[in-house]
Computed example of a mutant assay.
Amino acid sequence: MTTFVSAPGGSRHLLSLREATRDSLEALLIRAQAFAEGHYDHRALAGTAVCTLFFEPSTRTRLSFQLAVQQLGAHVLSFDASTSSTTKGETALDTLKNIEAMGVRGFVVRHRDDGAVAELAAHVRPGTCLVNAGDGRSAHPTQGLLDMLTLRQAKGNDFSRLRVAIVGDIKHSRVARSDVQALRALGAGEIRAVGPASLLPDDGTLDGCIVGHDLDAALDGVDAVMMLRLQRERMEEGLVDSLEDYHRDYGLTVARLKRAAPDAVVMHPGPMNRGVEITDEVADGPQSLILTQVANGVAVRMAVLETLLKG
């Protein structure tokens, strides 16, 4: 199967990277690289309207999608749940159907509930396309794609040589799930998943990964370190003793980073809890690609929107 899900009536959606193939991912990454280098048609989606339908807060994802829409010459509508009719009891589906009735063809949806975007996609008109901008703990496919583009730029096209460590709150991270799926599809040589036992999933997410609880051991010789935010807002119970203890055991410091390969790169999807999962010196240091990830987000989202809405 390809990265994009085809639906009756000619609609296509990007819901997750779970069944993505190497070919489909590489095609998207090549296209995104062209966008990153400025090679694209500024009017590719002229006359098209895209709505960023966000039911959760966002900075990087929302703004980069809006910029991607504008760069392609389309109209962008920004939906804010806090000032919308959802505060009066309107359902997410009714909200989408009403905006769709205005002639909007593309929707970029973020929702707090697992599977919410797929449920919405099942009820749209033929020709309407949805992009999952993060649903619950399930998936964040464009973040996974931009992370792969960032790794590809830094380390080359052959992922089979890469040893990648994913560190922290994997249990609550939709980013981690999409990254693991993409790394598997691209044939990453070794995926190491590390965190406290209470923050590691037992749902098959980490099948095929080397799973551990010792950050120092997991960092030995890795080529890339993907740090994750401690997502306290998604925790139903206290799963870490204290932020200080978490930083002591799982915070990335300059000293710890020395255990990785000399040319190892550091990534983080943001927002960062500085002093918790990562120190200022590492986040702002020479091995950090965190702002490169942000920049690549625009190019990746342009490639996704063009592919979905133009073909």
Score class of each variant (00 low, 15 high):
residue 244 E to I: 14
residue 214 D to K: 03
residue 291 L to A: 12
residue 118 A to V: 11
residue 237 E to Y: 04
residue 240 V to Y: 00
residue 228 L to C: 09
residue 290 I to C: 03
residue 171 K to I: 13
residue 51 C to A: 04
residue 277 E to R: 15
residue 147 D to Q: 11
residue 238 G to T: 15
residue 212 G to I: 05
residue 36 A to Q: 06
residue 106 G to D: 11
residue 288 S to V: 00
residue 171 K to C: 13
residue 71 Q to Y: 12
residue 129 C to L: 06
residue 44 A to T: 00
residue 42 H to G: 15
residue 13 H to M: 07
residue 224 A to L: 01
residue 104 V to G: 12
residue 127 G to A: 10
residue 309 L to C: 05
residue 273 N to I: 03
residue 144 G to E: 05
residue 25 L to S: 05
residue 108 V to I: 10
residue 199 L to Y: 10
residue 126 P to S: 08
residue 215 L to S: 01
residue 207 D to R: 12
residue 52 T to E: 06
residue 7 A to C: 10
residue 176 A to I: 03
residue 158 D to F: 05
residue 271 P to Q: 04
residue 306 E to R: 02
residue 112 R to L: 10
residue 9 G to S: 08
residue 19 E to V: 10
residue 214 D to I: 06
residue 75 H to Y: 09
residue 241 D to P: 11
residue 15 L to D: 03
residue 225 V to C: 00
residue 232 R to T: 12
residue 99 I to M: 04
residue 169 D to R: 10
residue 311 G to L: 05
residue 150 T to S: 00
residue 53 L to D: 08
residue 208 G to F: 02
residue 40 Y to R: 05
residue 62 R to W: 11
residue 224 A to K: 00
residue 122 A to I: 08
residue 192 R to A: 04
residue 188 A to M: 02
residue 123 H to N: 11
residue 295 A to I: 14
residue 116 A to H: 10
residue 289 L to H: 05
residue 301 R to F: 06
residue 64 S to K: 14
residue 121 A to Y: 02
residue 29 L to Q: 09
residue 234 R to D: 06
residue 127 G to C: 08
residue 215 L to N: 00
residue 225 V to H: 01
residue 80 D to T: 13
residue 169 D to F: 07
residue 160 S to H: 12
residue 139 A to Q: 15
residue 172 H to R: 01
